[in-house]
Simulated assay, not measured.
Amino acid sequence: MIEFKVTGDYIPMIQLLKAVNLVQTGGEAQIVVEDGEVKYNGQVDYRKRLKVKPGDVVEFRGKKINVT
Rank of each mutant, 00 (worst) to 15 (best):
M1I: 06
M1D: 09
I2A: 07
I2T: 10
I2C: 12
F4S: 03
F4Y: 15
K5L: 06
K5Q: 04
V6F: 11
T7H: 02
T7Y: 05
T7R: 09
D9F: 00
I11E: 00
P12K: 14
P12T: 13
P12H: 02
M13N: 09
I14F: 13
Q15P: 04
L16G: 12
K18W: 02
V20N: 05
V20R: 01
V20C: 03
V20M: 01
V20T: 14
N21Y: 03
N21S: 10
L22M: 13
V23Q: 04
G26F: 13
G26K: 06
G26C: 14
G27A: 12
E28T: 09
E28I: 12
E28C: 11
A29N: 04
A29V: 06
Q30F: 14
Q30W: 09
I31M: 13
V32S: 04
V33S: 08
V33T: 09
E34P: 01
D35Q: 15
G36L: 05
G36H: 06
V38R: 07
K39H: 14
K39N: 13
Y40D: 00
N41K: 12
N41H: 05
G42L: 08
G42N: 12
G42P: 03
G42F: 05
Q43T: 14
V44T: 15
D45A: 13
R47T: 08
R47H: 07
R47N: 01
K48W: 02
K48T: 09
L50G: 06
L50Q: 05
L50F: 13
L50M: 11
K51A: 10
V52D: 02
G55A: 10
V57H: 02
E59C: 14
F60W: 04
R61H: 08
G62K: 10
K63L: 02
K64W: 03
T68V: 11
T68F: 04
T68E: 04
